[in-house]
Amino acid sequence: MQDEVRTAAAFYTGSAGERTVHLLGPYLTQRWPDLKGQRLLGLGFAAPYLPLWDGQTALSVSARLDSATQCEAGRMQYCRECVVSGRQLPFDDLSFDRVLMIHALETSHAGHELLRAVWKVLRDDGRLLLVVPNRRGVWAFSDTTPFGQGTPFSQRQLRVRLEQSMFHVENSRTGLYPPPFPRLGGRRAGEAIEKAGRSVLPTFGGAVIVEAVKNIWGGLPLLTAKSCRPVGRRIFETG
Rank of each mutant, 00 (worst) to 15 (best):
M1P: 00
M1R: 07
Q2W: 09
Q2G: 02
Q2V: 12
D3P: 00
D3N: 09
E4L: 06
V5A: 01
V5N: 02
T7Q: 09
T7G: 03
A10V: 10
A10E: 13
A10R: 15
Y12Q: 00
S15N: 11
G17D: 03
E18G: 14
T20A: 10
T20K: 07
H22C: 06
L23S: 07
P33M: 07
P33W: 03
Q38E: 09
L41Q: 04
W53K: 10
W53P: 02
A58Q: 14
V61N: 02
V61E: 04
R64S: 09
R64G: 12
L65P: 03
T69V: 15
E72M: 06
A73N: 07
G74Y: 10
G74A: 14
R75I: 11
R75K: 11
R75Y: 10
Y78L: 08
C79Q: 15
R80L: 14
E81M: 10
V83D: 15
S85Y: 06
G86K: 01
G86R: 01
R87W: 07
F91Q: 02
L94R: 15
S95Y: 09
S95N: 08
F96H: 03
A104R: 02
L105D: 05
H109N: 14
A110G: 15
L115I: 00
L115C: 03
R116N: 11
V118K: 00
R123H: 13
L129R: 01
L129I: 04
L130I: 03
V131F: 03
P133R: 06
N134G: 01
R135K: 12
R135A: 13
R136C: 05
W139V: 05
W139T: 05
S142H: 14
D143P: 10
D143Q: 14
T144M: 13
P152C: 09
R156P: 00
R156E: 07
R159H: 14
R161E: 09
E163H: 10
Q164F: 04
Q164A: 11
F167G: 06
V169K: 04
S172P: 05
R173A: 12
R173F: 04
T174Q: 04
P180K: 10
P180C: 06
F181E: 14
F181C: 12
P182G: 10
R183F: 13
G185T: 00
G186I: 03
A189C: 14
G190P: 02
G190W: 08
G190T: 04
G190C: 04
E191W: 07
A192M: 12
I193P: 02
A196E: 08
S199L: 15
V200M: 13
P202S: 05
A207I: 07
V210L: 01
A212E: 00
K214S: 04
G218A: 15
G218N: 12
T224D: 15
A225L: 09
C228M: 12
C228G: 14
R229L: 13
P230Q: 08
V231L: 13
R234V: 15
R234N: 11
E237R: 08
E237A: 09
